[in-house]
Design a protein around this nucleic acid. Sequence first.
DNA 1: GATGAATGAGCGTTCATTCAT
DNA 2: CATGAATGAACGCTCATTCAT
Lengths: 215, 215, 215, 215
Amino acid sequence: MAVGESATAPALRADAARNRELIVAAAIEVFAERGLEASTADIAARAGVGEATLFRRFPTKDDLVTAIIGVQFEESAALAESCLADEDPWQGVERFLYGMAERAAVDHGIAGATKEKCVASPTLAGERRRILDLTSQLVRRAQKADALRDDIAGQDLMFVMSAVASLADLPFPGLRADLWKRYLGIFLDGLRPEAATRLRPGAPSRKVIENPEVE
Amino acid sequence: MAVGESATAPALRADAARNRELIVAAAIEVFAERGLEASTADIAARAGVGEATLFRRFPTKDDLVTAIIGVQFEESAALAESCLADEDPWQGVERFLYGMAERAAVDHGIAGATKEKCVASPTLAGERRRILDLTSQLVRRAQKADALRDDIAGQDLMFVMSAVASLADLPFPGLRADLWKRYLGIFLDGLRPEAATRLRPGAPSRKVIENPEVE
Amino acid sequence: MAVGESATAPALRADAARNRELIVAAAIEVFAERGLEASTADIAARAGVGEATLFRRFPTKDDLVTAIIGVQFEESAALAESCLADEDPWQGVERFLYGMAERAAVDHGIAGATKEKCVASPTLAGERRRILDLTSQLVRRAQKADALRDDIAGQDLMFVMSAVASLADLPFPGLRADLWKRYLGIFLDGLRPEAATRLRPGAPSRKVIENPEVE
Amino acid sequence: MAVGESATAPALRADAARNRELIVAAAIEVFAERGLEASTADIAARAGVGEATLFRRFPTKDDLVTAIIGVQFEESAALAESCLADEDPWQGVERFLYGMAERAAVDHGIAGATKEKCVASPTLAGERRRILDLTSQLVRRAQKADALRDDIAGQDLMFVMSAVASLADLPFPGLRADLWKRYLGIFLDGLRPEAATRLRPGAPSRKVIENPEVE
DNA sequence: GATGAATGAGCGTTCATTCAT
DNA sequence: CATGAATGAACGCTCATTCAT
């Protein structure tokens, strides 16, 4: 089954399935290049299909965005599972954040839309919970090995990743596209157990919000 | 000279200058509320002026955005100067990042537009260099006091701030608007000298980019 | 021969004929519910056939509408014949108008399309002449029995019916769907011989057009 | 004040007012020719303005339709008042129905939309009540003069008019456009007191609905 | 100088009809 | 033959920008 295809959807004819994939691929490209305001016309043109064909598969632009997020979620879950198989728990955390940020860094606008769609799409919400569960495992495993500070939860990984990846959106010309790697490094430093314990007393920020509630 | 007004612009009549300020103030409000896609018509209405008046002062929507970024840059510079006056060098760093992220967190779309405009507008580029100079002073002062890891440069503060503030744009409903504070805390932890020295050998990320070139 | 099927059409295979009937039945339902702007896709879906199948049988949406009008014309002719068999000639007229208006009242858009199609389709035009002939018999029979004013012709019944039925299309919410019955009553009153003779002298309207020419 | 212009609307500049009238006039023409499905683009072109100009004055196609209905309502009220001034009460009724049907006969689709809009627009609803009040006066005056059957109410005039006018929509080519006059005559015959009293006992239709409730 | 009005270009979306399987 | 897929043309509507008052 192709990525992003719902198990419950009726089987598509071969040509239709091919077009569907073309559209999704084109949308990922175009959204990455110009952000979510890119027009459906441009996406259809890039895919080499008529605009109406796009709307046959994705009755709404939102549906298209949601489908793309679904693809990303599956990839994210696969990455998390792979990282859970790492022998070194800390390296699992590191690889996960690195991989997530790497993809998010080229997806410009898409990450920003993720949450809105999760609310609307039950499928997406379920997928999201699955990823959260996996990252929680990653976190707990690293904490047990004393490789990760213990005031961190699974969802923190997602936010850290999102924050770091956002740097790739900064359109300074001449700016290294992989600058985010530098700042992911600093974030990772801040996630080590030593960083937590050495914090100056009275530091205001980290203590403020202990348990971010994210569904 | 009014904030955000170019030094080379011809002097405006009093009423024209007043309108200019009204428009800038309205734009800051409206952009913060609805993002950069807010319409010029809405901004003009909020300012209580005609739409054509807006375009007389800012021939392009981009020009208006640029002007707003200019206002923010002046505020940022003022904040940096105030933080340089802090007795405790580390607290200066902390307050600067906190203050910058706090404003960025309510400016939704604007932060993302900053870099594009800096390239186009020489005024903005100059202002930016000034801020960079101030943050470099902040950084060096903290490093001399052994409060900040020494592989950090002035511009890193800007990027860290930007990354953290981006979290405020995540539209999870029900998500605490001040969640960015939690992650700024982690980032700050990663900036301490101890965090740098304790990093596992072989950690790939931070070492990758030593000297980000940003103009 | 199936209802609405042209005598000159080549014989259809059994399954094709079945599909044709399914489509016509579905179209009658859907048009009655949503008017003539209902989409061919909806009709095909209601019929349980593919959209292309619909267009194989009816190369144009207009052809489908024409076919439905044909079905209605056959029903109308049958009704007229049944009313001719009434013992009471006036009751024949009354029952005919009542029955025609009753159906038209639920067919929303279709009545309005009838005439356009009659012109285009020779089959339909022939059918129409047949109905006109029957209504003329209804009228003459009632006139001979002195139950109907004598300045009325067969085609007048069609127009009166159409006028009354149009009231069912008025989309006042909360309006009784059978309000047309009230006005059919008034119309019937106006058709009685006494109504004609009692008209005030000089009344401009009825005398204006003595012999409407309708083909 | 121009017809159809709300007393509470802000004053329009001269050129804008002219364009507004051009648009309304064009819309009346185009809707009359092609029905309410005529496109806003066609109306704008007929008016000789850009499409966006149309939408500036009437933010929605519905708003445009509503405005046109408003114009008609004002004309209708004026007609009713004029007919109330007739010396002969019956002739007042006759002239009113004749005038209303005459205009409706060229307005094709518009009458059908009237009720939907009345619900949405308070202005329109008020105007409608005013017309209903005037027609009720027309009816009562004629009934007192024993010129109109007494089981008729003011709103019946509107429905009768609507039914008769609908005949003008029948697109039979070669059909006299003023055929509705003939049937208005029959309807008027049915409205005379004699028609009511002479009705055969047992006639089912008229008695069915005594008091149609229309707001 | 200030304004409301005007507009062309574009957007997301629909649909009758044609095409490939 | 039956079908789902594809599509061009159109629709109602928005908006940054220009024009006339």
